[in-house]
Write a protein that binds this DNA or RNA. Structure first.
Lengths: 227, 227
DNA sequence: CGGGGGCTTGAGGCCACTCAACGATAGTGG
DNA sequence: CCACTATCGTTGAGTGGCCTCAAGCCCCCG
């Protein structure tokens, strides 16, 4: 639908393509890059939302915390994804770099100014918000009604779609991250993955356990009752 | 921020106030009303989204189903609320009247046309979508990480805010609806409510068990770990 | 007054959680 | 290059919170 940011250098020069903004059409828009070390906070919940971010390299988690430390990750942001877009003045999540991560920043204010005059950009802002809403709606169904195996299967299908290259899926996030995304504990996630391995549905490759090959995609899909 | 539809007849004539649309400013926009009997479907998931709806009287539930019948209610729509607003062409939820319900319809197409020329309406569309997103984000935290008592407390606080008049909260929905909204079973909801009653935090009034008085709001809030 | 739906309450079961031990890996400093 | 350590992941044993199944009550409505 819109141009996706890829690792192709030709595309990296036209940034925030999903919003229909490029350096060419709006040369005055500052598009600074910034790099965060693994585990560092990009912005906190309830902080003023002065910037919108786009992942150029790495991965980001957005989450909410309860006062006793329980955590719910609302989304993972991978290369190309835009995050931190709020309509109000405050961020509604805390965002942290999962691994070393480079992001591109755009001032929220200048984005609003562009949207003011450019109906296309305005529509893309709505479109982006709608995509986030759709993801959240599907995730509510997962969190409210799916079993642990269904949740993990759904997670793998989502990640397979978003970051698999050459058949192998290199997960940037830990079991704890996955658990907090799926509303489970890390042990339950681990057991579900082991079970999928026993069933010859997935395979682990490499030295750590974060690189996964989907061996039988149809079985994986059948485990997640889409609807 | 924007004019809310109320039961005041003076306001009912200017409809869809939240979108900044009134019959005066757009006399050609058709604003038909329609009434649905208790339990009937207003629209189904994946049906074409030709209309946007506003509740004039009654209450509506929006939900998704899994193939084996598990249900997740994403939101309750009460008097004044707008629902069925999709950015794409299909509805992402099924909507049903919880009780006898009157809605006002507006053609999605004409709404788009108005938004095209009226930046204010366009902003309000984004604003409305953002509100829905915010609700979904908070609900993910509830579904993923809160205990049954915290969920029921959060539900009562939400409903208290949205439909309490003269101290009494007349819930239109059944225990099963509440359960499917909170990701619980109806028995667990019932037990939580009984517990809140034992603790002198809520009181039941009237012949059925759907009219609730919040006796100790501060205790109720403290049970729900906001964040 | 009989039937049905909605709600509550109890008894028992199960799935995911808690607690714990252990192995593997990556990072650190000698 | 090799201990040393911290972190991560897996697996097992036992617990517990919510679910399942069931019975009974109340209210509404024919």
């Amino acid at each position: 639908m819109f141009i996706r940011i890829t690792t192709d250098p030709a595309y990296r020069s036209t940034s925030l393509g999903e919003l229909g903004i490029s350096s060419d059409s709006n040369p005055k828009v500052s598009l600074n890059e910034f790099t965060y070390k693994k585990g560092t906070e990009i912005f906190g919940e309830k902080e003023p939302a002065d910037y919108v971010y786009q992942v150029m390299a790495g991965a980001v988690r957005s989450y909410k915390l309860l006062s006793d430390g329980r955590r719910q990750i609302g989304a993972f942001h991978l290369v190309g994804d835009i995050f931190g877009l709020e309509n109000g003045s405050e961020h509604r999540f805390t965002a942290e770099a999962i691994v070393g991560t480079t992001v591109r920043l755009i001032k929220r204010r200048s984005l609003d100014m562009i949207a003011e005059s450019d109906a296309m950009v305005s529509r893309n802002l709505l479109s982006l918000t709608t995509e986030n809403l759709q993801h959240a709606e599907n995730h509510m169904l997962l969190l409210g009604r799916k079993t642990s195996l269904e949740r993990v299967a759904a997670f793998l299908i989502e990640m397979d779609r978003r970051l698999t290259a050459a058949g192998v899926m290199p997960l940037p996030m830990s079991r704890r991250d996955i658990a907090d995304y799926l509303g489970l504990t890390l042990e339950t996630v681990s057991r579900a993955l082991s079970r999928l391995h026993e069933l010859y549905i997935i395979e682990f490759v490499g030295s750590n356990q974060r690189q996964i090959v989907v061996r039988n995609r149809r079985q994986l899909v059948s485990l997640d009752l889409q609807n």
